[in-house]
Amino acid sequence: MELIIDILSDGFFAAIAAIGFGAISNVPVRSFTGCAIPAAIGHMSRFVLMTILSWNIILASLIGAFAGGLCAIWLSKYYKCPAESLSIPAMLPMIPGMYAYHAVQALVLSFSEKSEDGFMHYFMLFNYNAGVCTLVMLALVAGVLIPIYVFNKRAFTATRNAECLDPSHPDKI
């Protein structure tokens, strides 16, 4: 039961983060739920893979981003907006912030170390954290872009609206 609550709370906070980051990019207000759902699905998938199946963060991020990206493609038709405008804000909660932070910290410390051993220790930590951070970012990008290229037609016709001009509102899109 505790695990289920953890998974659901993970999805909930990921959804709030996606809405807030989507608002920075001026996602249409009616599409906020369209950002929240892929974010929750993606983050919950990654959480389950990492905590229950003990996958590493890189592979788990790839699968999580792919799940979120697929969900965004499916939802884009409903919200009549490009899939990437839903999936990109949805991926932002999966950015490996702690690894980036540790990488910066290790870099600063490596240059403030006097001894060679100390320098090598912090420089190794910098390489590890920066490497994981970069690979997770690439996994997120790949996870978002693969569904767009696989379901190319759906992704690029999502904004098509069958209704033609409304004579009472001729400038309405």
């Binding site: 996602v27 599409s31 907006c81 490009p82 405008s85 904004t159 609206n161 899109i173």
Partner: peptide, 11 residues
């Protein structure tokens, strides 16, 4: 970045 305008221009 403005995804709202992006969506509207695509439509």
């Amino acid at each position: 970045i403005d995804f709202s305008l992006n969506s509207a221009l695509s439509r």
